[in-house]
Design a protein around this nucleic acid. Structure first.
Length: 299
DNA sequence: TCCAGAGCTGGT
DNA sequence: ACCAGCTCTGGA
């Protein structure tokens, strides 16, 4: 069977799984309401120029309150300007944990205080971070406490994963916005060979994934505990998902992991992968759609 | 476009 | 101390 055929098959199967879980009232609430895409200053990630203190977030992205004085109820994004939301009523946001630093306590020269206000090791929303908040890099997102790891897609916790990052790294994952499938971690050789050692952060699949992997195990626990998982979508997903932001990373709110299973992955060698089905929790902002308009119209 | 090498988090 | 991780940047 060709790669394309196999991919179609996997996607169809994943879609069926999502549809199976789709017997929920969430869908209408999470349907995209409008096409919000605006032209973005292209390719401006992490400019080396210290000048650009206002590194421009695309469209209606609401920036995290880097300057405190944000009062808890008022939407800041232009799209939602003026609206007020009773956050207390929205979701169990967990207990806000003021940062207590361990290793990240090591401050750089010239750095006055830690970059995080809250500990990312909590379930639910991070206080004061609105759904839809956008960051240029994973580092920024990490500093906002929404998803701690800079590289890893999964932030594991004792009662399930705290957060995950959707970066479109797997060809057969399906993203319907209100629900999606997600592939676990592991099964990659990041070191290269003895003779040709590498120092990679990602690499092609070269062995089976399993639930032994602590990240995958955490997501499996999420199925049992039904703890909310924070989800961020990254620009790399735009090749296959219209819900991915055109640039940077965006907080898309809380999801539940409804199912965990293992299947033959869509990779060279047909190594096994861990798969997870996510469904969005109700009462949240609609996820904006990326019409894929300008930049590199792949596909 | 590819490749190498790096910083950082978070767990063991 | 060591290692894994859906990153990022710079240079060929």
């Amino acid at each position: 069977m060709s790669y394309a055929e196999e991919r179609e098959q996997n996607i169809a199967r994943n879609r069926a799984i999502l549809a199976d879980l789709g017997i929920n009232p969430l869908r209408p609430k999470c349907e995209p309401r409008e096409n919000l895409r605006k032209k973005v200053a292209a390719k401006k990630r992490k400019s080396p120029l210290p000048e650009s203190d206002e590194l421009e977030p695309p469209k209606k992205a609401s920036r995290i309150a880097d300057d405190s004085n944000e009062q808890g109820g008022t939407r800041r994004s232009s799209r939602l300007a003026g609206k007020t939301v009773d956050y207390k009523q929205e979701q169990d946001r967990g207990v806000p944990e003021p940062m207590t630093f361990k290793r990240s306590q090591k401050l750089k020269v010239g750095q006055v205080k830690s970059k995080r206000t809250y500990d990312p090791h909590m379930y639910g929303h991070i206080p004061d971070v609105e759904v839809g908040t956008w960051w240029a890099t994973r580092e920024d997102c990490s500093n906002a406490s929404v998803h701690g790891p800079w590289v890893s897609g999964i932030a594991p916790g004792p009662n399930g994963a705290y957060s995950i990052a959707l970066s479109g790294g797997y060809d057969d994952d399906v993203d319907d916005g209100y629900a999606f499938t997600f592939t676990g971690s592991g099964g990659r050789d990041l070191k290269g060979t003895k003779t040709a050692p590498k120092n990679l952060r990602t690499a092609p699949q070269s062995s089976d994934q399993s639930f032994e992997d602590r990240n995958n195990a955490a997501l499996q626990r999420s199925v049992d505990t039904q703890k909310p998982v924070r989800v961020i979508r990254g620009f790399k997903g735009k090749a296959r998902s219209k819900y991915a932001p055109s640039e940077g990373y965006r907080y898309d709110g809380l999801y539940l992991v409804k199912k965990a299973w293992i299947e033959k992955g869509l990779n060279k060698g047909s190594f096994l992968v861990c798969k997870f089905a996510f469904v969005r929790m109700p009462e949240q902002e609609a996820i904006p759609v990326n019409d894929g308009g300008d930049d590199e119209s792949d596909e």
